[in-house]
Amino acid sequence: MITVAIEWVALIILLFTLLLIGITLYLFWSRTREKANQHVKKAYIEKHNRHWYEYFRNLAPFSEEMVPVSPYEIEAVEEIFLSYLMNVSDADIRGKIKQFANEHLVGHYKRMLSSRNWGKRMNSLYRIADFQIYALLDVCEQMERAKLSRDEYFQLLKIKLLFREERFIESFLFMPVKMSEFQYKQYMLLLSPSLLEQLKQRYTELVPECRYALIDTIGIRKEMDTLDFLKACLRDEDSEIRIRSLKAINELNIRIDLTEYDSFIASPVWEERFMMTLLLQRLPDEQSLPYLEKLMNDSSWYVREEAGRAISERRQRAGKRDAEPAY
């Protein structure tokens, strides 16, 4: 049996009690400080929201009183600015936010960028993009050389795309991290037509996820002059590329030349046959019906269902035409 002296037990209890009291006092102090800081933030918003409104709407001049002096006042300014940016599109207001951020918030975000805290660095990167703080572009470019997380790199590249697009393509092609297809798509949706064209020309240098995102984006943006590019993609060995290309062609809402696509009607990949049932619906009945009837007996339920629906619609249209009186 282990025996422990009562003095030792009392000492341990005392130490634990002191530790608990210390933790409680720290939590209490921390909570009080947080409340005080939130109060500073709230007070700034209550005092200056109207001033910002009047300044943005040209009802009053800018006042130095509106310049935030503490990090919590800066948070308050961020909240005000983000409320405008999320809801209001007036170019004048957005221009004033950009001007103010470049004049008064650069130091704050620069300090945050060099923080060891990942969250602070990310927040800084988000705000640089939101408020268009071009004064920190060089700092951002220097950051690219450091070891970064995928999210940081994604945001850095987005900043480059927004403010220094002539340097975007090289950084994009040789990025040290691999993005998700969703992230690639976010870039693609922001690309200008000239950058999109450059990316098409360097298609072979792209990773598969990026290729998928590029083809999907072409469909979403309905870029009519990309038809030849999409047709070339139909010869790709990767079936995912071929399916997405057919989908993008379908998005263009054009009438296809069937001789270029008929091989997909007998494709071993059901998604390709399914896309063909959609594309066939843009052709006249005499061209499409024989193929649609063939696809009615497809091994895939999805293909049969779509082909059946297309045939039924056509029959209904034909029925209506026949029922109309001939004047």
Partner: peptide, 14 residues
């Protein structure tokens, strides 16, 4: 959003 609500109110009051 309290801030945007105030923005709207000020816009309407003007």
């Amino acid at each position: 959003n309290e801030i945007f609500k105030d923005i709207f109110r000020m816009s309407l009051q003007n």
